[in-house]
Amino acid sequence: MKTLKKHLIVIFITLTVAMAFLNSIINSVFNTIAENITNEYMMGLALIIYFIAVILVLVIGAILFVHLISKKIKEENIRYNKEKNILFANIAHDLKTPITTIMGFSKALYDEVVDETEKKELLNSIYGKSKRVNELLDLMFQYAKLDGVDFEMKLQELDVGRLIRETIALYYNEFEGKSIEINIEMPEKPIKLNLDNVEFSRAISNLIINAYRHNKPGSKVAVRLEEDDGIKIIVADNGENIDDEMKEAIFNPFICGDESRNSKEGSGLGLAITKKIVEKHGGKIFIDSNIDGYTKGFVVQL
């Protein structure tokens, strides 16, 4: 949508400038001719031709504007439908494996072809796969909701540092389970911004989840809050760096910077959701590979 708006603005400005230029030429030509006309009939005829020329420029400009807008809207619809088809294909791909496992294991239990010692293991697998399906559907719902025309942010003044600390606290066990050291670097004074508590907490959660899910045991993670001409939230780690060509693509749906999605540890939707939330708050998110003591960091700038 933002790309389409930019194209429309560019088209409008370009055509406005072009029409103004043509009208200035018409005015110049008319003034030159009018200086040499002494006959009232010829002057009236010249005025009629002048007004016809001005109207023609206006009509041609309007036709071009409508044509170019229609073309851009058509291109945007084609791009959107292509992205939607890819999204649906990836959703089907990611849902197929756990659903197939659930069907197979539940059929085995129904047919009673497994002994008592294996039942608990199969039930645990069914639960795990069901949880995975539910998580993926929840992410899909979040992503679709953020694209909805009726979606509105519920902004309120919040202490950003407190929000980040509370979010990190939810995942301490996951970091300890993978023996990942997490360092929290926050200023002592409160830093307040107008944020949507639920959505912005979700954005930070996705970055935290990404940090422990895509780093090896023994890694280091830092979460920083900096105030300098706005604020920066940095989630850095000393894991593998991300190639330059992936630094923008990684925020697209179903894209991961490693093999995690193929191994079913990640969905590739978390960072896409985070980007949408950050942009709806008027900010931007990017990857910085020049963070002291760390190989990379996801930076949210507001």
Rank of each mutant, 00 (worst) to 15 (best):
Gly230Asn: 00
Lys247Pro: 09
Ile208Val: 05
Asp196Trp: 04
Cys256Asn: 10
Ile209Trp: 06
Lys189Tyr: 09
Gly230Arg: 00
Cys256Lys: 04
Ala169Leu: 15
Gly177Phe: 04
Phe200Pro: 01
Asn197Cys: 12
Pro217His: 01
Asp196Glu: 05
Asn173Thr: 14
Met246Pro: 07
Ile242Pro: 01
Asp228Ala: 15
Glu245Thr: 12
Lys232Phe: 10
Glu227Ile: 10
Lys189Gln: 09
Asn194Ser: 14
Leu193Asp: 10
Thr167Trp: 05
Ile255Thr: 04
Val221Thr: 05
Lys247Asn: 11
Lys178Ser: 02
Met246Gln: 13
Arg165Asn: 15
Glu166Trp: 10
Phe200Lys: 02
Ser205His: 02
Thr167Arg: 07
Asn206Gly: 07
Asn194Asp: 08
Asn210Trp: 02
Lys247Gln: 11
Asn206Leu: 07
Ile231His: 07
Lys220Leu: 09
Leu225Asn: 12
Glu199Leu: 11
Ile233Gln: 03
Pro217Glu: 02
Glu248Trp: 11
Ala222Ser: 14
Pro187Trp: 03
Met186Val: 06
Lys216Met: 14
Glu259Phe: 12
Glu188Ala: 09
Glu176Tyr: 13
Asn183Leu: 14
Ala236Tyr: 00
Gly230Ala: 00
Ser205Val: 00
Glu245Pro: 13
Ile191Gln: 06
Lys232Arg: 12
Leu193Lys: 14
Glu181Gln: 11
Glu176Pro: 12
Ile191Met: 07
Pro190Met: 10
His214Pro: 08
Ala222Thr: 13
Lys247Phe: 08
Lys220Asp: 12
Ile182Glu: 01
Ile168Arg: 01
Glu185Cys: 08
Ile180Asp: 01
Glu174His: 12
Lys247Cys: 09
Gly177Met: 07
Val235Ile: 08
Val235Trp: 00
Tyr212Met: 00
